[in-house]
Write a protein that binds this DNA or RNA. Structure first.
Lengths: 269, 269
DNA sequence: GCGATTGATACCCTGAAGGCATGGATCTCG
DNA sequence: CGAGATCCATGCCTTCAGGGTATCAATCGC
């Protein structure tokens, strides 16, 4: 019933590595200790979390559930501790979440000029749950790309960018100048938000190794260019909208100021 | 950085009792241990949380912040642990939050008839943050009275009830049959959501002891009748709306079923 | 000034957390 | 098939955080 966060962190490490030895190494403890702690954790929860064979470690349904829960718990706890520290030191802070490929430095610089006493920070979001840092309290404002779950969020559209097709350089279509969606009809698309492709790097790796192609926002294509991939404009796919986002029920002056500064900055850009 | 939940609980107990001895008693530990643990906690956070004199304990700004944060953290952690346990035992559960005075037993009984395998549970809400159990994951559906913060919530109005005036039995107006808002113009109203009156019982206690009067929903007046208070209809105050509420982004079948069963049940009632 | 109240300090003890050595099971490869 | 590699579990030892008792020190009320 008491749930020790240390043991929760231990479990998370094992869940991520699927391997006690390497998880222990990352935690700077020895493997036997980790085995014992995780087993004790399971007994406390009265619930089996892992299926161990001598060769592999797998998560049970409960283990998967706990792993999901743990993400949010640990993130919220860390954010809460930092907020308490900020209050204790009379520090004002604004954290900006941003989706891969988007740049917020201009807005932050402009905001810092106007509010030099406010510390700013940024946190990257994972593209299949872009709203998570806002909802769990890690960030107060986000700079996100649609689509995302906007329930309870205040959104300000600030831009629209085309999407380009990303293909392996060796692909037959790669030498063409511009494509249409018809050209891509037979290709395997990697756009669906499956959690398999957890990072953009992983997605590009899959594309480069021939597992499929994808449509990506132009800014992403610019940021992650690599020699074994080509990016080609596609005539008839809709672009994608970028938004400034904040929790709808937040009314702090700092937040409103940032939204104002950011919209003007980004409009001038 | 590591934040021990045990110490967090210790701090919360002290913050609530404003007294080490009584907090220790509630925690089933001794006072010296509690003093040491809380001080160690402050050192870990590198942040003073309490101002102690030999006669009193007060919260610093950081302490207040942490106390607020701790509410959510501990509630979410407990809810998460229970969800993990439910998954581990293949238990399906639905938790219904309800505001003071509302009765959900009919809906729950009807739902249980249709889904006998689903465990149901209820959690009371505090009237000044009725949406909290939904947002922190303790409950999946709520039966709340407006006004509440409905951003990101899916709401289904299910009823409208009049409000009645609650007065001390000894009050000059208490012998009148019906009032108008003009009659109450000179009275001190206890309706504003100040956190001073944390429970309805406390509110009624204040009224009975002559600190003011209040407008309360009829169902609340019925539930909490006591000899030293009278409830009188007021001709010209608007009634209050009751809603079934769920997080807007939730689509679980169980939840949708409950909403359906509940709306029909409540409409027949 | 005196007792009551309340938080802090000193000192001790127990048990949980960590380390090391090693066992036992399974996979890989010659 | 046998040898080695890999990986989790177990046994045993050590350390220190967490808890207990006794007591001190400061403040309030009378």
């Amino acid at each position: 019933m008491d749930l020790d966060l240390r043991k929760l962190r231990y479990f998370v490490a094992v869940a991520e590595h699927r391997n006690f030895g390497r998880a222990a190494e990352q935690l700077y403890i020895t493997q036997p200790v980790l085995s014992r702690q995780v087993r004790a954790f399971e007994q406390e929860l009265e619930c089996t979390l892992l299926v161990r064979t001598t060769r592999s470690v797998e998560l049970t349904a409960a283990g998967k559930q706990l792993y999901e829960e743990a993400q949010g718990i640990l993130a919220s706890v860390a954010a809460a501790v930092r907020r308490v520290n900020d209050v204790g030191r009379s520090v004002q802070r604004l954290v900006v979440a941003f989706s891969p490929g988007l740049h917020v430095s201009d807005a932050i610089r402009a905001f810092t000029r106007r509010h030099p006493q406010v510390r700013t920070d940024v946190v990257p979001t994972r593209w299949w749950e872009q709203d998570a840092p806002l909802r769990d309290g890690r960030a107060q404002v986000g700079y996100l790309r649609r689509p995302f779950d906007d329930s309870g969020l205040h959104t300000i559209p600030i831009g629209h960018e085309p999407r380009v097709a990303c293909l392996p350089a060796a692909h037959p279509l790669a030498c063409r100048g511009e494509l249409t969606s018809a050209d891509l009809a037979d290709e395997r698309m990697l756009d669906t938000p499956t959690r398999r492709t957890s990072s953009l790097e992983e997605k590009f790796e899959l594309i480069a190794s021939g597992h499929g192609v994808a449509l990506v926002p132009l800014s992403v294509a610019r940021s992650y260019s690599r020699p074994d991939l080509v990016h080609l404009p596609v005539a008839d796919v809709p672009g994608i909208e970028t938004c400034l986002v904040a929790l709808a029920d937040r009314r702090e002056k700092l937040l409103r100021d940032f939204l104002e500064v950011a919209t003007t900055t980004l409009r001038n850009a």
